[in-house]
Amino acid sequence: MKIWTSEHVFDHPWEIVPAAAMQKYPNPMNPSVVGVDVLDRHIDPSGKLHSHRLLRLPSIVKSLNGSARTKHKTMELKTTNISFTNMTSTILTQEAIDSVQGVSLSSYQEGLMVTKISSNASKGREAMEWVIHKLHAETEELTASVRGSIRTPMAAAAFVEK
């Protein structure tokens, strides 16, 4: 059995990290996910958001990685702002436990899997940063657009009054 763990600090306002996690796919770092379908989304009585999503893969990827067979994978994303300020950062903690049994070279295969998990986690963090930067750019563009539309009527009114 091999255990892999990682921590990454997202140096962004707390509110944007969960928003980015919900918009992570598709992204250029993981072209094998072509889309995401939300199957169910609800807020439980304690205020936690639950989102059951289905990642869509191209047919060729499904046949290569065995996704055509049933696999159960779970991702739990917990976000809590315990200080109630915007000056917090979000720490992503990841852990994988890999155990290969009943085949030859199981330790070697576990090592290969841990290497792949580490590589995929790195791509996932890059994808989150990509989405966060994209969200910032969209916000700046929207802000500039709103500022422009606010100035335009005032300038037109000033022009008409003269």
Rank of each mutant, 00 (worst) to 15 (best):
A68Q: 15
A68D: 13
T70K: 14
K71P: 00
K71H: 15
K71W: 14
K73F: 12
T74K: 07
T74V: 12
T74E: 07
M75Y: 13
M75W: 10
E76D: 14
E76A: 08
E76G: 02
E76P: 03
L77A: 05
L77S: 03
K78E: 12
N81R: 02
N81L: 08
I82W: 09
I82D: 12
S83W: 14
F84H: 12
F84Y: 11
F84V: 02
T85D: 10
T85L: 07
N86T: 11
N86H: 09
N86G: 15
M87S: 13
M87V: 10
T88R: 01
T88V: 06
S89T: 13
T90S: 15
T90C: 13
I91E: 10
L92T: 02
L92W: 14
L92P: 07
L92Q: 13
T93A: 07
T93G: 08
Q94V: 13
Q94I: 04
Q94H: 03
E95W: 15
A96W: 11
I97D: 05
D98R: 02
D98Q: 15
D98F: 15
D98G: 10
V100W: 02
V100P: 05
V100D: 04
G102K: 01
G102Q: 11
G102H: 04
V103M: 09
V103K: 05
V103Q: 09
V103D: 01
V103T: 13
S104H: 09
S104V: 03
L105A: 02
L105E: 01
S106I: 00
S107R: 05
S107K: 08
S107P: 01
S107W: 12
Y108N: 00
Y108F: 12
Y108M: 10
Y108T: 04
Q109D: 01
Q109H: 12
Q109R: 08
Q109C: 06
E110M: 06
E110R: 02
G111A: 00
G111V: 01
G111W: 00
G111S: 03
L112E: 03
L112Y: 05
M113R: 00
M113C: 04
M113P: 01
V114L: 04
T115R: 11
T115A: 08
T115Q: 13
K116A: 14
K116F: 15
K116V: 10
S118E: 06
S118R: 08
S118C: 01
S119W: 06
S119I: 05
S119P: 00
S119Y: 06
S119M: 05
N120W: 00
S122A: 12
S122P: 01
K123I: 05
K123W: 00
K123Q: 10
K123D: 09
G124D: 02
E126G: 07
E126K: 08
E126M: 10
A127L: 06
A127E: 06
A127S: 07
M128T: 09
M128P: 01
E129Q: 03
W130G: 00
